[in-house]
Every structure is written in C-alpha cells, then in structure tokens.
C-alpha cells in the first residue's frame, strides 16, 4: 500500500533498481506510461511531451510557456495514474509532482561521475571523453529544466527522503534497502493521504484546463474547494470568477470554485 518515486541521475542504473523494486513489492512499475497517457488525453505527440520533460527551456519557452503547458498535462496524467496506489514511478519530476505528499516515498539514485562514465562507455560504445561530455550536457540540461520550472536544482537532497549512491551498494543492495524502508509506517498510504492526493488531482485537472490562457495561475484545492489565484486587473475580477467557475465546476469531485485576483502592480 504505497507510492514510490525514483529520481535517477542519468546512467546511474536507477531504472534497473525501480524495476527490481516494483517486482519485489508486487507494485506496478511506471515511467513512459504517464507520457503515453498525457499524449492520448491531450492529443499531443509523445515526442513533444518528452522534449518538454527532458530538454532545458529554450528562449521561446520563456515567452510562450509551451513547456509549462505540457508539464501541466503530464502532471495531471501522473496524478491520475498514481491514484491506483501500489506504484513505483521512475523518471523525471515525480518528486516535484508529489511535493507535499509526505506518504510518498521519494528516492534519488546517484552515482559518481567516473562510475556513470563507465556505464555510458559500455552502453553507448563511446570514448571516455565523449561519455564525460554527454553526461555534463545531460546534467546541465536537467539543472536548467528544474530551475526554470520549480526554481530548485533536482540534485538538492531536500527534495527526497533518501539519496542513495550506487557505486558501493550496487543495484541489488539498493533494492533490498529501499524494499525495507518502503515498509515503514510513514510511507503507507492512509485515508488522509488519499484525500490529499485527490485534492491535488482536482487542482492539477483544473490547472490543465486553464494553463493555455493563464500559465501563471496558482491553483489549489482543499476538500473539493478549488482556489484559483491569478494576477489581473481588479476590473475583470467578476468576469474571471464566472469564467473559472464555468470551466472548472464540472471536474469530478469539485464542490466549489473560488477566484482570488491579485491586482497588477500599479
């Protein structure tokens, strides 16, 4: 009865760990499935979503918020997926998507650069120099991505319950340890955590509906009451309130929609 997210440094054997862990726990192992779901639900090519998740933001992203929109779609698909419970998710952004859900066991798998270089050289059949360059580029791209979207480096340890270095522990050692920890009471799904997850999903669904027009809106939900905070002119407060209510009231589980307009700085 639990949800585990595994963030993995590229070429740190995190995928292998996630697969073995889910098998041992009897949980479903999820990664690309979330992108496929988002792609189907919003009719967007999977490749476009992959790029949104993988690449550092471009100049256009800063202007057009394209990346934000796609991430909102992926987040919604992710939260819908994990409602099922008993899931090991490995891949990007799981720890960001579940921030505030303390019952979700958040793991990061890392390895020393030298270890990762060896893995890249074997897997991609490239030279040591090429492997180093590839990893440096990947790490920098991830850093820019998370800084742009969440204002925090994905390597920051505070995002996780545990950070495991696989160099010494190896894959099987890591799996065994994570298996034991996942049984802790604090990482078991409870009625309270399920309620919180449901509210989070409602907010994610609401944001996915309005993100195109209001990429900077802040959407929250508590006990089915949705609060949309948006920066705008006070003159259009009533119009926005009606608009959000009309757009969001039919989302499953929504009891009420409230709008809070933050006046533009004059």
């Amino acid at each position: 009865m639990g949800i585990i997210t595994i963030s993995r440094g590229s070429y740190s054997r995190g995928m292998e760990i996630a697969e073995k862990l889910s098998e041992k726990l009897g949980y479903e192992c999820v990664s690309r499935e979330v992108l496929l779901k988002a792609s189907k639900d919003f009719n967007i090519p999977e490749v476009a979503l992959t790029q949104a998740m993988q690449n550092a933001p471009s100049f256009l992203d800063h202007l057009k918020h394209g990346k934000k929109k796609y991430i909102a779609f992926i987040r919604k698909a992710f939260l819908e997926y994990i409602q099922k419970d008993n899931i090991v998710y490995h891949g990007m952004a799981g720890h960001f998507f579940t921030t505030g859900l303390s019952n979700v066991f958040k793991v990061r798998i890392t390895a020393n650069l030298e270890y990762r270089i060896n893995v890249v050289m074997k897997r991609e059949n490239v030279s040591q120099e090429e492997a180093r360059k590839l990893l440096e580029d990947l790490d920098e791209s991830r850093r820019k991505w998370s800084m742009y979207l969440y204002g925090i480096d994905t390597r920051t340890p505070y995002l996780y319950d545990i950070v495991l270095h696989v160099d010494c522990m190896q894959v099987d050692g890591a799996v065994e340890l994570l298996y034991n920890i996942s049984k802790y009471k604090c990482f078991q799904t409870s009625p309270e955590s399920q309620k919180k997850l449901k509210d989070m999903l409602i907010a994610a669904r609401a944001y996915a509906i309005i993100v195109d027009k209001f990429p900077d809106a802040n959407v929250k939900c508590k006990n089915g009451v949705v609060l949309v905070s948006v920066e705008s002119s006070l003159a259009v407060e009533k119009r926005l309130t009606n608009k959000f209510s009309k757009l969001l009231k039919n989302i499953e589980g929504v009891k009420e929609v409230k709008t809070y307009v933050i006046p533009f700085e004059t």
Binding site: L113, R155, P157, Y158, Y160, I162, V163, L164, H165, C168
Partner: peptide
C-alpha cells in the same frame, strides 16, 4: 549529494 553514500531526510 555526491559526497555521501547515503543522505537521509
């Protein structure tokens, strides 16, 4: 985090 084998929150 690269300095450690294990970081525990």
């Amino acid at each position: 985090t690269e300095l450690y084998d294990l970081v525990l929150h």
